[in-house]
Measured scan of single mutants.
Amino acid sequence: MQIFVKTATGKTITLEVEPSDTIENVKAKIQDKEGIPPDQQRLAFAGKQLEDGRTLSDYNIQKESTLHLALR
């Protein structure tokens, strides 16, 4: 499925993911596309910060959802 990640600079990244993917996997995909190390990424959805060990389906993130990326 496709999801979107909006960066602090307003850029939107499109990612191909599975509901079973962990947040860690998603951060690795962002690193592949943007070169941002996962340990510098903070992802949020619906106002909640997402934890590495959880999956997209844990957070009820569905196709075409938009996550927000902040850098630490």
Results as ranks from 00 to 15, higher is better:
residue 32 D to F: 09
residue 44 A to V: 05
residue 62 Q to N: 13
residue 37 P to S: 11
residue 28 A to T: 10
residue 12 T to I: 15
residue 8 A to C: 04
residue 39 D to Y: 08
residue 60 N to C: 04
residue 34 E to K: 04
residue 7 T to F: 14
residue 59 Y to Q: 05
residue 13 I to S: 02
residue 4 F to S: 07
residue 35 G to K: 09
residue 52 D to Y: 13
residue 10 G to W: 05
residue 7 T to A: 06
residue 48 K to T: 09
residue 34 E to L: 15
residue 15 L to S: 00
residue 4 F to C: 03
residue 24 E to K: 09
residue 56 L to F: 03
residue 23 I to Y: 02
residue 28 A to D: 06
residue 59 Y to S: 03
residue 27 K to V: 02
residue 2 Q to E: 10
residue 9 T to V: 14
residue 49 Q to D: 15
residue 54 R to H: 13
residue 61 I to R: 00
residue 6 K to P: 01
residue 69 L to E: 01
residue 14 T to Q: 13
residue 31 Q to S: 08
residue 39 D to T: 05
residue 63 K to W: 10
residue 70 A to R: 05
residue 22 T to M: 07
residue 17 V to A: 06
residue 7 T to Y: 10
residue 2 Q to A: 10
residue 63 K to T: 09
residue 48 K to P: 02
residue 51 E to D: 11
residue 17 V to N: 01
residue 70 A to W: 10
residue 32 D to Q: 14
residue 47 G to S: 08
residue 32 D to E: 11
residue 28 A to P: 01
residue 45 F to Y: 10
residue 13 I to A: 02
residue 52 D to V: 07
residue 66 T to D: 04
residue 28 A to I: 10
residue 18 E to G: 11
residue 51 E to G: 04
residue 65 S to H: 11
residue 59 Y to I: 02
residue 19 P to Y: 08
residue 22 T to Y: 08
residue 31 Q to N: 13
residue 10 G to Y: 05
residue 47 G to Q: 08
residue 30 I to Y: 03
residue 29 K to Y: 12
residue 5 V to W: 01
residue 51 E to M: 05
residue 52 D to T: 10
residue 43 L to W: 02
residue 50 L to G: 01
residue 50 L to S: 01
residue 12 T to N: 07
residue 6 K to T: 13
residue 37 P to A: 15
residue 67 L to T: 02
residue 27 K to C: 02
residue 20 S to M: 14
residue 32 D to P: 02
residue 14 T to V: 15
residue 56 L to W: 02
residue 60 N to E: 03
residue 57 S to V: 08
residue 69 L to A: 02
residue 16 E to A: 13
residue 11 K to N: 09
residue 46 A to Y: 14
residue 22 T to L: 08
residue 17 V to E: 01
residue 70 A to N: 15
residue 60 N to H: 10
residue 45 F to W: 08
residue 24 E to W: 12
residue 25 N to V: 11
residue 23 I to M: 05
residue 33 K to F: 14
residue 8 A to D: 12
residue 29 K to R: 10
residue 61 I to D: 00
residue 67 L to A: 01
residue 49 Q to L: 15
residue 48 K to A: 10
residue 7 T to L: 13
residue 22 T to W: 07
residue 22 T to F: 09
residue 35 G to S: 12
residue 32 D to S: 12
residue 22 T to V: 08
residue 38 P to Q: 08
residue 10 G to A: 10
residue 34 E to C: 03
residue 20 S to E: 14
residue 72 R to N: 13
residue 30 I to Q: 00
residue 35 G to H: 05
residue 67 L to D: 01
residue 22 T to N: 09
residue 55 T to M: 14
residue 66 T to E: 13
residue 27 K to N: 02
residue 23 I to P: 02
residue 71 L to S: 15
residue 4 F to R: 05
residue 8 A to N: 10
residue 13 I to K: 02
residue 25 N to T: 14
residue 72 R to Q: 15
residue 65 S to G: 06
residue 33 K to H: 10
residue 21 D to P: 01
residue 61 I to G: 00
residue 14 T to S: 08
residue 6 K to A: 11
residue 64 E to I: 04
residue 54 R to Y: 11
residue 41 Q to D: 01
residue 67 L to R: 01
residue 33 K to G: 05
residue 44 A to E: 09
residue 14 T to K: 07
residue 54 R to I: 12
residue 3 I to H: 00
residue 71 L to Q: 10
residue 42 R to A: 12
residue 19 P to E: 11
residue 58 D to G: 05
residue 5 V to P: 00
residue 57 S to L: 15
